[in-house]
């Protein structure tokens, strides 16, 4: 077994543990490379089926290609696709692109708040109707008590402290200093009522591993990750007003892997194109403690 086989097996193992232990689970799909690899692992773990819904938080500012890609794969792979959105804020224009709030506030409204209320079922959720290929209002308002998330330990500091199975309390808060122990493939799968859980099967993967796996498995990805001839590509995908591309000649997966191995991007953080990270001295920690993924 090579290093990708090992990462894959651990990821599949964790997904199966999660599925065996929890009801009302959902998997967050940001449409980015990491959560798409996660989705692929789920298809591996359950042999082509994904026995829980995929949840996407639509900020209304996602790059249009991302939404097209999401719906295409959902239909092709028979996914139970659900999305949620902060319609109020979009309608009242309390967003950064509208110039009414700063970046962090915008993230907290369009992502964190939308996520919380979508997971809890308090806000309307929309599901993909595979017959009409359109989204309908979802009449199930049951909360998700567990969410599977594609964060990686190497992305930034706080994520390196995560556990594979990480509890959040009623308020969705994360007690960093007092986390459950994890050893011998035994995870925290027992919870008092009211806890909600994040499951992180990709914790040990690096950015390079993600691309190597995409190459090996031939996983479809959004074209935005590749240089289309203008010498630019996205390294991390988010909302278009706050995400910028990096200079790169990489036109396909092979070239991205080469680029990562060459050390050319060594001194550029992966999320350097994500402007919200820099507007906060504490990096993502403030957002994450409050429930950001």
């Amino acid at each position: 077994m090579d290093h990708l086989d090992q990462l894959e097996s651990l990821g599949v193992h964790i997904l199966r543990e999660a599925y065996a232990n929890f009801k009302n689970m959902g998997m967050l799909w940001s449409i980015g490379k990491d959560s798409t690899v996660l989705l692929w692992l789920a298809r591996k773990a359950f042999y082509g089926h994904v026995p829980f819904p995929l949840v996407h938080i639509d900020t209304g500012y996602k790059i249009p290609e991302m939404i097209q890609y999401r719906d295409r794969l959902s239909l092709e792979w028979g996914l139970n696709m659900i999305f949620g959105r902060n319609d109020d804020v979009l309608a009242s224009k309390q967003t950064y692109p509208d110039g009414n709030v700063d970046r962090l506030k915008c993230c907290s409204l369009l992502k964190t708040k939308a996520l919380k209320n979508t997971l809890s079922g308090k806000w309307p959720r929309y599901y993909l109707n595979h017959e009409t290929k359109k989204y309908d209002l979802y009449n199930n308002t049951e909360p998700f008590t567990g969410v599977i998330v594609g964060v990686r330990a190497d992305e930034e500091g706080t994520r390196s402290k995560e556990r594979y199975f990480s509890p959040r309390d009623r308020e969705n808060l994360w007690d960093l200093g007092d986390q459950p122990p994890e050893f011998w493939n035994q995870y925290k799968t027992d919870f008092p009522p009211g806890t909600h859980l994040r499951i992180h099967p990709l914790l040990d993967w690096t950015e390079l591993n993600i691309w190597e796996y995409i190459q090996r498995e031939n996983i479809p990805t959004v074209s935005l990750y590749y240089n289309q001839g203008d010498g630019k590509r996205y390294r991390s995908l988010g909302c278009y007003p706050c995400t910028s591309s990096i200079d790169s000649e990489a036109r396909n997966v092979e070239e991205i892997i080469e680029e990562l191995k060459s050390g050319k991007l060594k001194n550029i953080a992966e999320r350097s194109g994500r402007a919200q990270d820099k507007d906060d001295g504490g990096g993502l920690e403030t957002l994450r403690k409050d429930g950001y993924m």
């Binding site: 199966r16 042999y47 082509g48």
Partner: peptide, 18 residues
């Protein structure tokens, strides 16, 4: 870990996983 039988898409495999 589990015994899977996902009947969607006409799948009738019964798979013991671990």
């Amino acid at each position: 870990q589990d015994v899977y039988k996902f009947t969607k898409f006409g799948d009738n495999r019964r798979i013991v996983v671990g």
